[in-house]
Amino acid sequence: MKKIKTTAKYISLLCLISCNPETKDQKSILVTTTPASITGDYQVILRPLNNHLAGWIPNGKSELKIDDKTLSIKSWIDDSSAVTHRQFILKGSRCPTLEDDKNKDGVIDIIETVRVSGKIILPLDNNLQVQLGPLDQYPFGNFAYDQEISLKDLEEDLRQPDSNPDDHVIKLTPREFLSFENKVMIVLGINEKTILPDLTQNLDGVSPQLSIPIVCGLIKKTDEL
C-alpha cells in the first residue's frame, strides 16, 4: 500500500513537472526544493494568550535550526496545566489580540486564531514526518520539546494532496516554497475543568479546553532580533 502511495506521489510530482502548462521559469519553481535562503537560526518568543483561563501566565521559547538537510526544533513552555499541549506552526504572520475575539466572549479561541494567524501547516508533535498524528503524540504539562526532520521528507509530505480541504490543516501550494520566517507558532490547552463560555469554538475531535491557545509567537531569524 505504501509503495502504491509512493508511486502515486512520484507520478503527481512528475505531472507537476511535465504536465503543467506553465512557462519554463514557473516550472523551475515547481520543482525547486527548499531554497538556501531559509537555512539559519530562528527564535520564537512564545507569549501568553488567554492567560485569565490558563490560571497562570504561560510563556516559552522555541529555537529552530535549518541547515541544508535538516530542520530541528527545540522548545520549552512553562505552564501549570497538566494537560496535553497541541502545538502548531500556522501559515499567517500575526498573533491574535483581544480585538480578534469576534464573538466577544472574552476568549480568543482556535477558530478566531486561525482566522487571523492562518491555517495549520506543521503540527509540532513527536512525528514530524506525518502532518497529523494522534493526540498522545503531543507534549504534556510543562514541557521541553526536541524534534528533528529531514527537510526532504518534510517537503514531500507537505506537497502531498490535501486529503481534507475543509479542515484547518493545509498543504503547501504548488508554487509555494517551504519557509518558516514570520510564521506563527501556537500552543494549545488549558485545564479540562475550566468552564468556558458557550460560544468557545474547538478543533474537531478535541475538547474546547484543549483547543484554547495559551501562547503565540512569530518565527524570527535570530540575526534580525
Binding site: 518568543i45 492567560n51 485569565h52 501566565i57 498573533c95
Partner: peptide
C-alpha cells in the same frame, strides 16, 4: 516586559496580564 508582551504597553495593560 519582553517576555510577556510583544510590544511596550501601558502600566494598566501590563497589570491586566497578571491581575485576572
Amino acid at each position: 516586559d519582553f517576555m510577556f508582551n510583544p510590544q511596550p504597553v501601558s502600566i494598566k495593560q501590563w497589570t491586566d496580564g497578571f491581575v485576572f
